[in-house]
Design a protein around this nucleic acid. Structure first.
Length: 652
DNA sequence: CTTCACTCGTGG
DNA sequence: AAATCCACGAGTGAAG
């Protein structure tokens, strides 16, 4: 490859490249970004863009700050973290060549991204949202192929970065360093080569992945994922509105609270120590009084402690857990009580408040709020089961509005004046999926009859008519067991969470087997099918694959874990299929001005102007429950829909 | 200085 | 006998 001839410096060359690409029905593209928000698509600066199609490779620099040669060195003063000024040697680079302006490049390439050609990228949502800023907010139009998604469908268990995949498929190791993370300080010609190779390998990888997906009959789920990707692009661009003034108030409030609560712990303990260090907490709580401790007798080891015990090593007080579950057993001790209070407050302050506002002193903790909104990173390829993950920040683990502080955090997510939030939750989706797979039986028929599933389970175990089940029985024999069976929990776990003797737990599970034999038959059959395949795997409702090779492990505890994973993935993965389908359908039905903004496993959050609320509710209902999606399950789907001003108002 | 394992705590 | 599935992230402390 003669790199120089592939670098585009003028409009004539650019137009020629676009013409060449236009001969094909697909092309790949890739960008390089710089600036303080290089990894934030709604904020970053796009410095490079490259295109690749059969016989065409082009890389277009737009604002690379340096040239290709080091011509000297200077010293720059920088304060270290103790505030001391130190001098660092900094290379001086030659000037970069004259480059095309982004406005020109994105104007010339505008139609390419509007066309019906297949647009290919590795992690397409990053590149698409980043370039939309330069396209008057217009996202590229489908059809899409994101190679990160296709690679993940082909192997959900490995990390599907481009470089490892390229090494695997083509045996090429074209970038040993981390060029993509330091674009602005990397030589011009090196970035050009890197950007171009990324783009070309992405296109090649698309071809490999298409062939492998065809072999594995993964096209139906791949097309679903590409439809989901379109929805995700719109969500990523939109963001979730936040009550920023309330967030600042909450910071003030929590900071004073934490300070007081920290002092309360020290006072009770008679000394200061690091409250966030589990070992120091164990020392204070579990050491005897003559060694400055509280002399509490702990029950449960940490996971590391269990390993030590297994290995025959000596266990000390420091190997016992100090988690909230253990501490609750020692409530009444003044240190424990103060510590529990502190932990709750500190968790909310550091994870949620500082997590959103950022820490100006820490480079790796940026403010996550842009124009009053949070743009989380939803990854459709973020889990092994098919669910989404959410990061930077994670908006799928916002505290529930059960406590005052939890409510204040969740309440930060608001509808601006003139808008409403519509919160739509699938009710008991995993149990419905289980009933569908298990087929006719008490659970299946209960759902058909519209009876609450926890009541069904309790009635089945206690051999009572469902209208005679009391509230306590529903919780103890219904909810708790239903929770357990989805994850494959056993007698030991039931005994522990229900605080009952092991014998009693065994009895309850035996009764459940009697009342719901079809559930156990389904599990046995599923495992048999999974074991017969190589590698061992199951498929969800949409044909998504979860591979669990450990199913044939000679070690019994590894094999049992694999069995739980197989069963849980079949159910959790199929539920994920349903919510993904619902998102696509809802997005298509919603009026233009109504926007899906969040998805939390079984919940969709939509932001809607007041005058469109009724229409939007109808669209969401149709998207989540309409005939086209209901036909996937043999038991009825159900969704609870609430219209609110703050997310915290939607508690059940 | 960076990276990693570990513990803990949120959510579904 | 280590016996509950799937995530993200703050923070500690030791090792590279």
């Amino acid at each position: 490859m003669r790199l120089a001839s592939n670098i585009v410096y003028d409009v004539e060359h650019l137009r020629h490249v676009i013409k060449e690409i236009s001969r094909h029905d697909h092309f790949s593209w890739d960008i390089e970004t710089i600036g303080p928000y290089a990894t934030t698509p709604v904020r970053n600066d796009v410095a490079w863009i490259a295109f690749s199609a059969p016989g065409v490779d082009a890389v277009i620099p737009m604002r690379h700050p340096i040239g290709s040669r080091i011509i000297g060195e200077t010293k720059e003063p920088r304060a270290d973290k103790n505030g001391k000024v130190r001098y660092f040697r900094v290379p001086v680079w030659d000037e970069p060549p004259a480059q095309l302006r982004p406005s020109i490049v994105f104007e010339e390439t505008f139609d390419l991204f509007e066309s019906d050609r297949e647009k290919i990228a590795q992690n397409l949502s990053f590149d698409a949202i980043s370039i939309a800023k330069h396209r008057g907010g217009e996202l590229p139009k489908p059809p899409f192929h994101c190679t990160l998604v296709s690679s993940w469908l082909l192997d959900e268990n490995r990390l599907n970065g481009l470089k490892p995949r390229v090494r695997e498929e083509f045996g090429s190791d074209y970038d040993q360093g981390h060029t993509g993370k330091h674009i602005a300080s990397t030589a011009f010609d090196k970035v050009a080569r890197y950007n171009l190779l990324d783009t070309r390998f992405t296109r090649w990888l698309r071809n490999r992945n298409l062939a492998q997906m065809a072999e594995q009959r993964l096209f139906p789920v791949f097309h679903l994922e590409m439809d989901v990707l379109e929805v995700l692009l719109a969500m990523g661009q939109e963001g979730a509105p936040l009550d920023v003034p309330a967030l600042h108030d909450l910071r003030e409030h929590l900071e004073t609270l934490v300070e007081q609560q920290e002092a309360d712990v020290y006072r009770a303990a008679g000394k200061a120590f690091n409250l966030n260090a589990a070992r120091q907490v164990a020392e204070v709580l579990y050491y005897p009084q003559n060694r400055g401790g509280q002399g509490i007798k702990p029950h449960k080891l940490t996971s590391g402690g269990k390993k030590k015990k297994q290995a025959g090593e000596r266990i000390t007080q420091l190997d016992y857990t100090t988690d909230a579950d253990e501490l609750a057993k020692h409530a009444g001790n003044p240190v424990v009580d103060a510590l529990l209070t502190y932990k709750e407050t500190n968790k909310l302050l550091s994870t949620y408040v500082y997590g959103y506002l950022g820490d100006p002193t820490a480079k790796d903790r940026p403010c996550q709020i842009h124009s009053g909104r949070i743009h989380t990173n939803f990854k459709q390829y973020g889990t092994v089961t098919g669910r989404f993950s959410s990061s930077e920040p994670n908006l799928q683990n916002i505290p529930r509005p059960n406590t005052d502080l939890g409510k204040r955090i969740r309440g930060l997510f608001i509808a601006p004046p003139g808008y409403k939030l519509i919160i739509a939750d699938y009710s008991q989706i995993e149990l419905r999926v289980l009933a569908h797979f298990a087929g006719p039986g008490a659970l299946f028929e209960g759902f058909q009859a519209g009876i609450d599933p926890h009541t069904i389970t309790a009635a089945g175990i206690l051999k009572l008519p469902h209208d005679q089940v009391t509230g306590t029985q529903r919780t103890d024999y219904g909810k708790r067991i239903n929770f357990l069976i989805g994850y494959g929990g056993g007698e030991h776990l039931l005994a522990e969470v229900a605080k009952i003797p092991l014998r009693e737990a065994e009895g309850i599970i035996a009764l459940h087997k009697q009342g719901f034999p079809e559930i156990y038959a389904y599990k046995a059959k599923l495992l048999e099918v999974a074991r017969s395949r190589r590698p061992c795997h199951i498929r969800t409702l949409t044909g998504r694959i979860r591979r669990v090779p450990d199913l044939l492990s000679p070690a019994k505890w590894i094999r049992l874990k694999a069995e739980r994973q197989i069963i849980n993935s079949h159910i959790q993965g199929s539920a994920a299929d349903i919510i993904k389908i619902a998102m696509v359908r809802t997005h298509a039905e919603l009026p233009e001005e109504a926007k899906l903004i969040l998805t939390v496993h079984d919940e969709l959050v939509t932001l809607v102007p007041d005058h469109l609320v009724e229409k939007a509710v109808e669209a969401i209902r149709e998207g989540m429950l309409g005939a086209g999606i209901q036909s996937l399950l043999s038991v009825p789907l159900q969704s609870d829909i609430k219209i609110v001003d703050r997310w915290s108002e939607a508690k059940e």
